[in-house]
Simulated assay, not measured.
Amino acid sequence: MMRLKTMTLADMHEFQREAVRIETEITIARSPEDVFDYVTTPALWHTWHPATLGVYDVEPRPLTTGETMREKIAVAWRRSEAVWTVLGRDRPGIWEIGTDTAAGSAHIVYRLSADGAGCRFHRTLDFRSKGWPWRALDASVTRWVLERQSARALRNLKAVMEQVIAAQPIEQL
Rank of each mutant, 00 (worst) to 15 (best):
T6A: 15
I97V: 14
E81F: 04
A29L: 12
H49L: 04
E162P: 05
D138A: 10
S140L: 13
A10M: 14
K5H: 14
W45N: 04
W48M: 06
R111D: 06
R135K: 15
A103M: 08
P133Q: 04
L125Y: 01
L157E: 09
M7A: 06
L4V: 12
V109N: 10
E147M: 04
E14P: 02
A106C: 14
T85G: 13
L44S: 04
Q163I: 08
P32E: 13
L146C: 03
V55P: 00
W132V: 15
S31P: 08
L53I: 02
D115R: 15
M69I: 04
R123I: 02
Y110Q: 10
R155M: 06
T41W: 00
A153W: 00
A51N: 02
W95P: 05
W48L: 06
K5G: 14
T64N: 15
T85N: 14
G54Q: 08
I26F: 01
A74W: 00
H49R: 04
E96A: 10
G98F: 01
A106Y: 07
A106F: 08
S31C: 11
R111Y: 08
T27M: 11
G131E: 07
I26T: 02
T52L: 00
A114L: 07
A151G: 03
I165H: 07
I108E: 04
E96W: 10
D115A: 15
A153I: 00
A159P: 07
R155L: 05
H13D: 14
G93V: 06
A102P: 10
C119N: 03
L157N: 09
K72R: 09
W134A: 09
T6K: 15
